[in-house]
Write a protein that binds this DNA or RNA. Structure first.
Lengths: 340, 340
DNA sequence: GATCCTGTTGTTAACGTTCACAGTCTTGCC
DNA sequence: GGCAAGACTGTGAACGTTAACAACAGGATC
């Protein structure tokens, strides 16, 4: 093997020599500086093309102190919601010319979150998006390196960080009012786990809507987002089928479990009991019956978070905390009907 | 603001000065070199702690030519399968001390794949995992920078790259044989889109099993993985309910659509028609009826791909292409019954 | 007592880019 | 023709780390 055959990839100096200019001129061409003679520019471009030169972004990051990489800390990207949010983040970031480095946590706790943030900060990310849907994740931002731009998605508005989220309470209100409008006396609720902010918001919206209509909210049944927990709640609701005519379930997966329990117990939906879900996962339309639900625009949340974060990065982290709220949308299908 | 209050983060030289050693000794401590006196080591460690020093990984990457970052190119990480695979990849990579940079494509074509790979290569990743489930993605590896370690997940065994995948054909065989064992005369198939390798593998396994049993495979109904396409296929199958007693559907989402169509048409599952799905998504257990299906261990695929990739990276990309096959598992529930 | 090894430390030079500044060459204008 | 202003280009020094090598001590070996 001659050194020629296995030579390593060309650097800026090689291009410079090939084009008969200085490395700095090559740099200028690459960075679109105005003051380069068109003729010189094409000569450099040709040399780049011929040598197959690719700029070394690591070296660039070292001197500019910008890696053009964004960090994302998320929780269980296997779930539809987080997966869609992260997808939206990734698309938006790439469109803006940023790479995305992801850490997906198995469990949420302050320590794990901090480790994840540290890990990303070490890598030299320019900013961090934290999908922090749990109350217990709040402390994570204390460990943020000073001056590191950050955005919380579905998190609390604490400390200095901006927050992007869906208006959970409003979505829940929409669902509950829809059921009340159909003439139901009251609306039961299968909730998400208590330390999740989304679960809280939905409980709040549901409760508010009931109280505004002069009804006393029944005790919510607690689930954990999984179809199984919905199934368990569904069994309990089926046992009280005499008093229950309408249920607002905090997500579509649990709604599926509720539907399954009702089917097993011979409870007819929507004839006996009406159900509204939350999320609008792709499957919901094909449940039996097709599920009326509240759609969250996860993509918009992802895009919004990148928008806020980039504004922070590009304006030199002006620490004005923003709050971006994405409205949910009511999607009507066949799982609700007027009260008998 | 005095320069003291807004001083920037300390570098190795600062630690060295504080500990009264050279920066090289600090480097040695950080990299666990053997030849450092224990006393010196603790002194350095104390200085690091006191100054809150964090090593600059970008500078390190520049000189070592290793970024400890792995690139992942995937397709629509919103779907359960890809999302789970990517999650497995991320977990395994992080456990091995690697960052993960992700590009999620909207559509799969050779050009898009190449761009994605180039993009990641520019960033200086140490290796690339390509989730390339479509035939049309095959050409993407030609654009791979020479010497860049790479692994294809669910891809074809072409060129020089290693492949990690689930044994689709075997899973389909399991499903089909199960239905034949129940006494069904033949098994119909709702397939995935034709250019997907997984779809092909499942068709192949289904066909093989039927032929081995001396049956002539009926024409498969083509779907696109979505519940809606399953619904469309389901309507057609319901119209032929006289001849159809068993259906193998190429994924659980389409199976949901089929179930919905059957429900609308009054076709009873499993009494009239038995159904087997593929994937075992978390929802399947709560379909009506709960779906018998083939479980894919996406996590194992993700972990396996990282294992193969790291072996390639650490042994200096010895270009021996490996082939790792993850076996699927049959999960029996309530959507199948003996032939009437 | 000289020699050699080995453990420990320091010095200098990369890595490949951008930034700051200093040139040189036009061009236009008096 | 002289001169300033602008366009264009080059030179040197960062950025913060690791690699290569040199230097020095102290003990073992002959």
């Amino acid at each position: 093997m001659s050194p020629r055959t296995e030579r390593r990839s060309p650097v800026m100096a090689d291009v410079a020599k090939a084009a008969g200019v200085s490395h700095q001129t090559v740099s200028r061409v690459l960075n679109d500086h105005p003051n380069v003679r068109p003729e010189t520019r094409t000569r450099v471009l040709e040399a780049i093309d011929e040598l197959g030169y690719r700029r070394n972004l690591v070296a660039r990051a070292l001197v500019t102190r910008h890696s053009r990489t964004l960090g994302v800390v998320s929780f269980n990207t296997t779930l539809f919601g987080p997966a869609s949010t992260v997808d939206g983040i990734e698309q938006a970031a790439r469109a803006a010319g940023y790479f995305v480095s992801i850490v997906s946590l198995r469990t949420i706790d302050t320590a794990g979150m901090r480790d994840a943030i540290d890990y990303l900060a070490d890598q030299g990310v320019d900013g961090i998006v934290v999908v922090a849907p749990q109350r217990s994740a709040a402390g994570a931002f204390d460990g943020l390196p000073r001056g590191m731009p950050a955005v919380a998605v579905e998190g609390q508005h604490v400390g200095e960080v901006s927050v992007v989220s869906v208006d959970q309470a409003n979505g829940a209100r929409l669902a509950t009012e829809h059921l009340l409008d159909l003439g139901h006396e009251t609306v039961w609720h299968v909730s998400g786990p208590s330390d999740w902010l989304e679960a809280e918001g939905r409980i709040e919206g549901w409760r508010t809507a009931l109280e505004a209509a002069g009804r006393t909210p029944p005790e919510p049944l607690a689930g954990d987002w999984s179809p199984r927990s919905g199934y368990v709640a569904g069994r309990r609701l089926a046992a009280m089928a005499e008093q229950v005519t309408a249920v607002f379930v905090a997500n579509d997966q649990m709604a599926l479990g509720v539907l399954r329990a009702f089917t097993e117990e011979g409870v007819k939906v929507p004839e006996q009991i009406s159900i509204v879900g939350f999320d609008d996962i792709p499957e919901s339309e094909f449940f039996s019956p097709p599920l009326t639900t509240i759609r969250q625009d996860f993509g918009a949340v992802g895009r919004g978070s990148i928008e806020v974060l980039l504004r922070q990065i590009e304006t030199g982290q002006a620490c004005e905390r923003e709050r971006l709220v994405v409205p949910p949308r009511f999607v009507t299908r066949a799982s609700t009907s007027p009260s008998r």
